[in-house]
Design a protein around this nucleic acid. Sequence first.
RNA 1: GGCCCCAUGGUCAAGCGGUUAAGACACCACCCUUUCACGGUGGUAUCAUGGGUUCGAAUCCCGUUGGGGUCACCA
Length: 562
Amino acid sequence: MDYIKLANMLFPEELPTVEEILTCYPKRILPQKAQVTRVAPSPTGYLHIGTVYQAFINKLIAYHSGGVFFMRLEDTDCKREVQNAGDIAYNMLCYFGLKPDEGYRGNSEKQVGEYGDYIQSKRQNIYMAFAKHLVSIGKAYPCFCQVSGNKEDVLKRREEELAESDDIDGKDVCRYLTLEQVESNLSKGMPFAIRLKSEGNGEKKFKFKDEIKGEREIRENSKDIVILKSNKIPPYSLAHVVDDTLMGTTLVVRGEEWFPSLASHLELFHAFGLKPPKYAHTPVISKIDENGGKRKVSKRKDAEADARYFVEKGYPVGSVMEYLLNLINSDFEDFRRANPDKSYYEFPFKVSKIGSNNPMFDFQKLDDCSKQVIGRFSAQDIYNSLLAWAEKYDRSFYEKIAKMKDFCIKLFSIDREGKNPRKDISKWSEVENLYSYMFYTLDGKELIDYDFDCKNSPEEVISALKEYKKVFDINDDKQMWFDKIKSICPLLNFADNMKEYRQSPEKYRGNVADLSGLIRVAITTRRNTPDLYYIMQLLGKNEVEKRLDYAINLLLKKIQKI
RNA sequence: GGCCCCAUGGUCAAGCGGUUAAGACACCACCCUUUCACGGUGGUAUCAUGGGUUCGAAUCCCGUUGGGGUCACCA
């Protein structure tokens, strides 16, 4: 068979040769251990949190090795492409602090770097040239079988084939077409795809070292995989081999779902006589299903699959990244404890320490992580971040707090100065509710419900609040404030001293902590708030008195109803 | 179904042939305390299962079970 003739029949158009292309992409000049890594999302929707996770690992590797982290847009699937998804992906990566050093920069900015184009749909000639080359050396052939690419059809067909045999990778019939048959098909205008003429033997294994999984034995590829679709656009396999070669990628970090197709990628590199990069296959982030099963976080079913979810909920970037880093290298926590002020980029991250089982997404842990991160914020930072978040995601709250800057900063200062700050905020979206009692005045406010949840009767609560109102003075200092609370304890038969109360609780109706609790609930409707003294100071004399009255009246009404 | 990957508490996990099987989240108790927190101390709870190998197994090997992935002209 005259393969060069075949190649020219298939690709009559003017194309550069592979050698010419290769010389256009010079080797990168980098320090010895520098790694070139990449993030390569396909614009099929929003950015998946798993892509953030992958991108983070890639960025970390490039950063720590003094290499390059670039971005490439894998837009070779025209059917699934979603408008602006590439732009969203780029902007989200930047938002999470993962701005690529090189490559695609969204729709509005110019690409950066010498190894482009970084948008695959703009590189069609290159892929065609590579495919043609493989045909011309007898390692690829045209396939005229018309097969539906629709996912449902594929699944159905697969099921039918599986019913007959386990082995669904028999060699394609088109592999054995003669030059004349091809010519005849071509003259009828039949579309064709290009397939790799696999030389592998599925029974044979070869050694392979994965940077995460370690030494493996994998089966040779024996599938005649498609390397150019009938629309002349390559699928992932060819695009990966060509681009990561030309762009000088030294380490491909990708999800474990790619592991089964690794052998075919390796065979492709081999067919071209190219040296493959190193690979690291990472675990996939999973979650617990409604039914209790583990599964991959799915775009369709899980809101948190969309990276924007975390933005909308108001998790600070650092919180998400530290949580992810914790999944990536579980000893990150130790580092954080030892170095509370360092950037997480200073953590001595190791690819080899990435675990090999699929981590489960744990919101409790995320929240805790986030509380620690926000705990390191100053009151000013909290306010600024909250404001920026609210401006986008909660307009009415934004309008409110935009006018209350000083008040908010004072509020966020309570219990937050000093070594062990209060850790009660995990995301900006919960702040309004958490501190709701600080964001309204009683004027014009409808019924607020109180839950005193105490062992005292409503009558006792009323008299406690009345007594307190008598002595309350906004000008008191903190010591005086508390002394006054203590001073009314005896009137109510409350213990003003915890030690005494503990010794003989039966002698009292309550203690000074209980009394403080009643006042707290009356004023804030909550049992947990920051330091009550400062809350009252911020609220001011009138508001505190109004709230005390309000609570007393509410309780009176309740008694009358009974 | 074939092939591949994985298996330590509810979750994230250290562990690399000899450990009282770290640590974190969550939960509980106590301590601190002039309120809420913060912090501290302690506690409940784990090596999926059956066989080997070994003086000795969470650790090595095999089977079983369970979970995940993959088998597209999707990435």
